[in-house]
Every structure is written in C-alpha cells, then in structure tokens.
C-alpha cells in the first residue's frame, strides 16, 4: 500500500476491509502438536496400565499415570515458546487455549476429589475431555475433531456398561479416535489451511 492518504470510493473501502479480514487467518499446524503429543502419551499410559493389570501381579498399575505430570510441563513449555514467537493472536486461539486450561484445572480437582477410586476415572476423564475437544473442533472448523469428541462420549458409555476388560481398553481406543486420527489429519491439513 503506497499512498496512505489516497481517498477511496465506498467500493474501494469495502474492498480493503474484505481483503484484510480474509488475510487475517492463522495456520492450523500448531494445534496438531498437542493432539498428537497427548494422544500418544495417554495411549501409552492407558495401554500400559491395562497390560500391567492383565499380565502382571503389579499392585498399582495406575502409577503409569504419573508420566502425565512431565507431559503437562512439556505441553505448556511448547505452547509458551510458540506463543512468544507468534505474530498474531486471534479470538479463536484464545478460546482454544482457555478451553484446554479449563480442562487441566478440572482434571486436577477431579483427581483430588476422586483419589480413592482411581480404577474408574477413565470414563469420567473422557466425558470431561470431550468438551474442550468439541470446542476445539468447532473453533478450528475441523470436523474430525468434532467426531473425536462424539467418540469420547460414546466410548465413555461403552466403558460404563461394558465390563472391566472393555472399560480398560476404552481409553487407548478413545485416544486413537479422538486425538490421534484428528491430530494426523489436522497436521496434513494445517500446512495449507487457515482459520
């Protein structure tokens, strides 16, 4: 844009407004990191817990979930470093980030109040995770993530009525449908798409 004081007609003004609003879009690529990171971490923890429970005499297989604590720090550090490099923050970015921070706070409180029944937390975690996943899917306008959230609700129901073995496998299966498949699709799409 060369002459900043150039007077414009109404049509020219509207053209400038439309062009700039259309340009103000953000790449989706970054969002896939958290989905893939958490997808693989929870998949590994939940499957390890299941295998320890079924194949060994280990008394407290749920200890594998302590790997989530460094995961939170890795995820937050990644988000912080990427955020500092970011040139623009959209309203969608804010909704996306705060939906997951709310989920983190809810999870911490949930684990504190539910610490005496750790064997049945999976279905409740899926119920809680479905909400930020759905919000992210809507904000990113990315349908596989919306279906991922729906799969969390369906798998939580199956886990509740399906008995111990099905319940134990619910979480790793949910990670594939809710995070990993949408995460890889988003990474492919994100390199050339915007919100």
């Amino acid at each position: 844009m060369e002459n900043e004081e150039k007077l414009m007609t109404g049509e020219e003004s509207l053209k400038v407004i439309t062009a700039m609003i259309n340009k103000s879009r953000v790449s989706l690529t970054q969002s896939s990191f958290h989905l893939l990171f958490w997808g693989w971490l929870i998949f590994a923890c939940s499957l390890s817990e299941f295998l320890l429970w079924r194949l060994t005499d280990y008394a407290t297989p749920w200890y594998v979930w302590f790997f989530v604590i460094p995961g939170v720090f890795i995820s937050m550090t990644y988000g912080f470093v990427k955020g500092r490099k970011q040139h623009v923050f959209t309203y969608a970015t804010g909704i996306y980030v705060w939906a997951w921070i709310a989920f983190l706070f809810s999870s911490v409180v949930f684990f504190i109040v539910h610490s005496d029944h750790m064997e049945s937390v999976g279905k409740y975690m899926l119920l809680m995770a479905a909400m930020p996943t759905l919000i992210s899917g809507i904000v990113l306008k990315f349908r596989p993530l919306i279906w991922g959230a729906v799969s969390f609700w369906v798998i939580a129901l199956i886990a509740h009525f399906g008995g111990n073995i099905i319940s134990g496998l619910a979480m790793p299966v949910a990670m594939i449908t809710g995070y990993l498949i949408p995460g890889y699709l988003l990474r492919t799409k994100g390199s050339h798409d915007t919100i």
Binding site: M1, V16, M20, T90
Partner: peptide, 17 residues
C-alpha cells in the same frame, strides 16, 4: 485512508497483532 483502514480491518478481526 487506505493503509489505516487496512490496519484497522486486521485489528478488528484478531485479538492482537
């Protein structure tokens, strides 16, 4: 003015840039 309108059009559609 073309450039100021362009700046404002961007800033109205994002939180900050």
């Amino acid at each position: 003015s073309q450039l100021r309108l362009a700046i404002m059009s961007i800033l109205i559609s994002v939180d900050r840039a």
